[in-house]
Write a protein that binds this DNA or RNA. Structure first.
Lengths: 207, 207
DNA sequence: TTGCAATAAAGACATTTGTCTGGTATCTTT
DNA sequence: AAAGATACCAGACAAATGTCTTTATTGCAA
């Protein structure tokens, strides 16, 4: 048997090792702790880990693989998640556009359900500060209010315009005097969603 | 048997789920993917994961529990973290402005070191699509190149302008014909940082 | 001394989890 | 129609991993 190390010195090393691994993204297994600290028994590593849990310095998900984590970070929870950014969107429903994912951007939301990014093409909305290359963050919804900036599918082509609801029809207004409003026939236009945010990357790309 | 989902739609959801879990620090097990996506067979989840590995979108540590991770150098650490958004910034260094944090927004970066958001006031940059209420994402740096959009401190007042470097002096140009360029005396102006991204929330606030 | 707590070890067991084999249904291609 | 590809399911096996039991050594305190 190895001589006992005085104080909580070994436990401190165990704690530091777990912390490092957690910061790297992959929590260690008990046996990885054992190997890293040079124990000849799994149980030795386990005892240190359990004691750290008892002291409140670590937390654990009992029984699960790699179940040790930092208790403080639990409070944070899922703060933001990645939503996909679609590039080319045209011809057909959006469901087919999922193949053309450019990348992902983080959003401050609990669920990515129905939220996606859309790369802007064309200059029809420069009047409200939406430029080519910008990314519009869109929440899927089948209708919107007059004045909302929406993504609409007109004759199998996705476009971003300001929605105006008149009697008996809707209009899609560009925000650029060089472009003309679109007055689609009923049935030839469907609202995909509403633009809730615009992002512009002045340096680098999505990442 | 459940009806088959067309296209790579399901696989895309698998990918997003794994990414989310990786950001939270604990990679999912195959069975957790199965449960999250609602598969009735483990193998279904596994096939999607293995295909994502084959496509190079994921990587794996074969045989190990929770062995899926993101390829490239992205794998280590969180993918996006929250950066503070400062509201009123004037009179004095930015270090004192930390007390006026409006909120936090997620950024696709490894370290929040020196990155912060700044609420835009005034219309001096509307020409390049930066409007009042927008949030400029700023990376702190003491200098910048001509043409960069920078945050500068002129006479104890923070302002966002386009930087022009002439011989022997610098100029801060607004992007709005109604405003005049600022030609500060040397020493009365310091570059705080560079604007690397602009965000506009069309609905709700920061959250 | 005796007793007790802490550290460590060895082996075994139980659960979790990755992996495999085979099968069904739908769609596309030949 | 036949063949292939894709998506999915069912069940089982094996490796990885968490957990338990028992034992040994050392230091400290009553």
């Amino acid at each position: 048997m190895s001589p006992r190390t005085p104080l909580g010195e070994t436990r401190e090393r165990v704690y530091c090792f777990v912390r490092e691994r957690l910061e790297q993204g992959l929590p260690p297994t008990v046996r990885e702790v054992q190997a890293a600290l040079g124990f000849r028994a799994v149980q030795t590593a386990r005892e240190h880990l359990e004691r750290l849990v008892g002291e409140g310095r670590l937390a654990k998900q009992s029984g699960k693989a790699r179940g040790y984590y930092l208790p403080l970070e639990e409070m944070a929870g899922p703060l933001s998640i990645l939503i996909p950014v679609l590039g080319q969107v045209q011809a057909g429903a959006l469901s087919t556009a999922i193949e053309h994912i450019e990348g992902h951007i983080p959003m401050r939301t609990r669920t990515a359900e129905g939220i996606f990014g859309l790369r802007i093409r064309g200059e029809s909305m420069t009047g409200v500060g939406i430029f080519p290359g910008d990314i519009a963050v869109v929440r899927s919804q089948p209708s919107a209010e007059s004045g909302d900036i929406v993504v609409a599918l007109v004759d199998d082509e996705a476009t971003i315009k300001t929605l105006k609801i008149r009697q008996e029809r809707i209009e899609l207004h560009p925000e650029n005097p060089h472009f003309k409003p679109i007055v689609p026939f009923p049935g030839h236009c469907s609202i995909i969603g509403k633009v809730i945010e615009v992002r512009r990357f002045l340096e680098g790309g999505l990442h």
